[in-house]
Design a protein around this nucleic acid. Sequence first.
DNA 1: GTCTATACACCGATAGAC
DNA 2: GTCTATCGGTGTATAGAC
Lengths: 199, 199
Amino acid sequence: MRDRQTERREATRLEILDAAWALARENGLSQITLRDVANQVGMRAPSLYSHFGSKNAIYDAMFAQAWSEAALEMRDVARRLPSSPRTALKKLARTFFDFEVSDLARHQLMNQRTIPGFEPSPAAYAPAVQVLDDLHEVMAGLGVRDAADIDLYTAIVSGLIDAQQANDPGGDRWSRLLDRAIDMFADNVGIPESVGRKT
Amino acid sequence: MRDRQTERREATRLEILDAAWALARENGLSQITLRDVANQVGMRAPSLYSHFGSKNAIYDAMFAQAWSEAALEMRDVARRLPSSPRTALKKLARTFFDFEVSDLARHQLMNQRTIPGFEPSPAAYAPAVQVLDDLHEVMAGLGVRDAADIDLYTAIVSGLIDAQQANDPGGDRWSRLLDRAIDMFADNVGIPESVGRKT
DNA sequence: GTCTATACACCGATAGAC
DNA sequence: GTCTATCGGTGTATAGAC
């Protein structure tokens, strides 16, 4: 039987998180204050402590949300990858790249330590590990099995993401280099070319 | 004639900055408080305002210091580069990589936006631009003249730096991949191999 | 010119009444 | 659960001592 009490509580939690996301996108991730969040959901600041143990606990839940979203999106793409390994590598990279670049606040929370005292809890970190585990599995299917190769792949992709966000937000100066970078990587690990010749 | 007044003032400024660096390395970049910094140099917090207009002005001066150091070190290396372009590329990348990885607090200040309200001033940003301008010049001498190529190069190197700092601080999991990544890049832009064959 | 004492507004967090 | 009241701590402005 449904537990209306629990449902209501969960709804309030989500309402608080939505308010926090909205404020993060508007004023910056670290500029969120408990008073602002509470005000946005019609509460006083101390009332938030009935739902989250601390401000960092709110960041923690947001962190888990963000990586869970990413896990869903990456799995969805992984299920319908193009047959060419090289094109598949590009599709994977492009999906993650666009996901990260489309939300600056979310990207900062997921990948940078921009909040002074915040360290994600093991529970919140789990979906991030999930994304990486999935990547290893998919990459193995594409012929990339060495862990060092995947370390290189992730460093390249996130290097381009960080450069794009930091130096040309809203533009495409590094976004344009992504396919070329993946070709470069594919050449290095010996993945055969898909169709035609590389430039 | 020497201006003892100005000399004393400059010495005090450097003393304050040294204290700030020490506290940043000890407790984290964003954890330094004006009261702690002041205490370390034998002052009260408000006295710092005789030397810096705000806390962010201290970060600003530290930012300029860090990138000036980097500019010096990179120029020093650039003056005595190995003759092989490929080896020279590796030497440049390795120098910057080691410089960044050797000081976490400095790396955060230079390359990440880990301080909430802080944005470097144009004056403090100048040495960072200098480093990039120098890189363009050196790279041109090595046969890399396309700006997009250099964008790719910097994204790869800083991607590896960030991964090393974030996921394996003190280790070498991504450090080991640097030479390989540069070879991969050199292959892509058509720089001939130095000696022997790539693996 | 430097430094101090004081004060202010804001923050995250806690205690206790209802 | 939510409130009011309040705490210790922060960056910072200002008045004034030396």
